[in-house]
Nucleic acid binder design. Sequence first.
DNA 1: TTAAACTTTCAGTAATTATTGAAAGTTTGT
DNA 2: ACAAACTTTCAATAATTACTGAAAGTTTAA
Lengths: 167, 167
Amino acid sequence: MEYLEAKDKFISTWGSLGSLWGINKAMAQIQALLFISTKPLSMEDIMEDLKISRGNTSMNLRQLMDWGIVTKVLVSGERKEFFTTEKDVQELTRIIAKERSRREIQPVLKVLDDVSSIKDDGTDKTKELIKQTKALHDLTINADAMLNKLVTQKQNWLTKSIIKLLK
Amino acid sequence: MEYLEAKDKFISTWGSLGSLWGINKAMAQIQALLFISTKPLSMEDIMEDLKISRGNTSMNLRQLMDWGIVTKVLVSGERKEFFTTEKDVQELTRIIAKERSRREIQPVLKVLDDVSSIKDDGTDKTKELIKQTKALHDLTINADAMLNKLVTQKQNWLTKSIIKLLK
DNA sequence: TTAAACTTTCAGTAATTATTGAAAGTTTGT
DNA sequence: ACAAACTTTCAATAATTACTGAAAGTTTAA
């Protein structure tokens, strides 16, 4: 496999994966492109490489910056803006996990908490609703806490030692 | 909040959450409905409750059964089929994690492995592609292993002790 | 074997989500 | 203050994805 083929394969796979976990294709592809680029890219560069429109590029770059994954960089002597992404996978994971927790997990926790707190009128169905949403709430709390703890660790040794511990 | 309102809130939240992590709204809502139901439900019951068509119900129930989350149950004296979902959140998590690993993570790992294995032609961009896809591959392997180990544990004590360990 | 009771399939349609491209907006240098 | 270089916005449109409903298929009981 040649460089160009490998690059395309990586970008398109990353793109379709993205849509699977809540971000759209273009956004994931832009991030992928920046991730394997050796230098910051301009909007023009990205549009050309991925063959997407200026508007699309602009909007998705903004979203990536909102997520904190992509940042603008100034290239001296250039008027236009250049972009780069976090290159360290560990740090990238940390940012994404934190952001997803904030955007998705917290609102769900709120609903689960509200629902599991309704007045118990003594009927079976109410008891079941309370019981099951409480169980989901606890599980979600635990999973979220674990995720955050794990990804907060900058070093890899802890992760590795836990995996070992669990074998 | 009354039972009916709480129930609707739970089902619709679960439904929109579902579409966020790769299963469609109807599928997630059917699962949610079964999850808080005190007894198995027929296709008719589900259609009426969620106000969705027979076809939609049939297709999504099948998918849920493919995932291994929902099972048919025979109700004596009844001709039609009834459905129920796994009620234990721990077990539910285990099934979903395993299924998602198989469906999503493994194919991505394959691509990352292929891409990171291309011949190093000595150029910077090739080196970067190899380096970054390798890093992602390793991270993904670790995350997947950890996920599987964690959810394989049936008891909750281990999870709790790990969280403690990480504090 | 027939028909009633039930489930599945799938072509057509609806709903949702992503993308374009051109106009409006902004910044910078002279 | 002007205009060139660049970015953002957003209404229109395209692409994707989900849903319906009726016909076809299957199972069961008599």
